[in-house]
């Protein structure tokens, strides 16, 4: 059975909404099928945008981990 003292289980709802939103924006669904140019860092613009949202996702994820996860004083 689940432990009764599981006060802290995971991120808050706000964290998850932000993370899911950023992850959804890494999927290039919002570009027309012929949108290639301009090219940035050898990537078509839709690919570069996806990479930027991946970076933002990583930053949000690291921030959520470091601020949510409390150290266990017994360790």
């Amino acid at each position: 059975m689940p432990q009764k003292n599981q006060a802290q289980r995971t991120f808050s709802r706000g964290h998850w909404i932000l993370l899911i939103l950023l992850l959804a924006l890494t999927v290039p669904w919002y570009w027309p099928e012929t949108a290639r140019a301009p090219y940035v860092l050898g990537l078509p613009i839709w690919g570069f945008t996806s990479l930027v949202f991946s970076l933002l996702f990583a930053i949000a994820m690291a921030w959520a981990i470091m601020t949510t996860w409390k150290d266990d004083p017994r360790e």
Binding site: P2, Q3, Q6, Q8, T68
Partner: peptide, 9 residues
């Protein structure tokens, strides 16, 4: 992160 915090405990 769906389970790591309580699982570790």
């Amino acid at each position: 992160m769906l389970f790591a915090i309580p699982l570790r405990r």
